[in-house]
């Protein structure tokens, strides 16, 4: 019978907390950039300019057809090299955080753009017509009339995608970045208590994600009754 020994956890808390900060930072920036870039992609996809719509469709299909962990590895291995040669970044500077964030943001943008595209299409066509009839240009109509309504309907889906993204940040272990999951497994390895650390880390992920998804559900019911 396996003997559980939780004693290495209290001492490791500061290190783990730092890992959590890294995870949250990656999540926050990737969500933000992912939504902005995803919105642009969605608008391109819906645009009547064929070149834009094909580019966006190609982008979305490409990123949705490759595993996230591979995208992260590409960014980890290739992007720093590119930056060094193209922009003269000092060789060997630590760009793991930057490339992880870039990888996530570009990958998630593909998923966000599909959510946002559906959101834009859920706004009745007449709203765009009314905005145009008042003399608003395309960009103005989008920004002032269509997108605010689209986002309002999309908040639950965007948050749910954010939860998935938060869980997926654990994949940055491929670049040996000490996010929360990476930190937990490092401590576990060091103290020979990997099982306990992973159980603990799993519990923390569960509590955070479950709480947020409950909030999303609450918001959803409120949106429905409003």
């Amino acid at each position: 019978m396996y003997e559980f020994d939780w004693s290495s956890i209290p001492g490791a808390l500061p290190f783990l907390a730092h890992g959590m900060v890294v995870s949250l930072q990656i999540t926050a920036v990737a969500i933000l950039v992912g939504i902005v870039w995803g919105t642009l992609l969605a608008m391109m996809r819906l645009s009547s300019v064929n070149a834009l719509s094909w580019f966006a469709a190609g982008y979305v299909n490409l990123f949705r057809a490759v595993p996230l962990v591979m995208v992260l590895l590409w960014f980890f291995l290739i992007v720093p090299h590119l930056l060094e040669t193209l922009f003269g970044f000092p060789r060997g500077s630590d760009m793991r955080m930057g490339s992880a964030i870039a990888g996530f943001a570009l990958f998630e943008a593909a998923y966000y753009s599909e959510i946002i595209r559906a959101g834009i299409q859920s706004v009745p066509k007449g709203q765009m017509a009314a905005a145009s009839a008042l003399g608003m240009g395309y960009a103005q109509s989008m920004r002032l009339v269509v997108l605010p309504q689209a986002f309002r309907n999309m908040v639950p889906l965007l948050l749910t995608q954010g939860i998935i993204l938060f869980q997926d940040t654990s994949l940055v272990y491929v670049s040996a970045l000490a996010d929360f999951f990476g930190a937990a497994s490092k401590v576990g390895d060091r103290d020979g208590r990997l099982v306990e650390m992973l159980l603990f880390a799993g519990a923390v992920y569960f509590v955070i994600c479950f709480t947020i998804s409950q909030l999303v559900r609450y918001y959803q019911t409120k949106l429905k009754t409003a």
């Binding site: 009745p124 007449g126 709203q127 017509a129 009314a130 905005a131 145009s132 009839a133 008042l134 003399g135 608003m136 240009g137 002032l144 009339v145 605010p148 309504q149 309002r152």
Partner: peptide, 20 residues
């Protein structure tokens, strides 16, 4: 066109007020 439309009022069957 936007400039022209700004001075041509239009009223729709389904009102199309901005609900937000």
């Amino acid at each position: 066109l936007p400039k022209l439309r700004a001075h041509v009022g239009m009223v729709f069957q389904n009102f199309e007020l901005f609900p937000h």
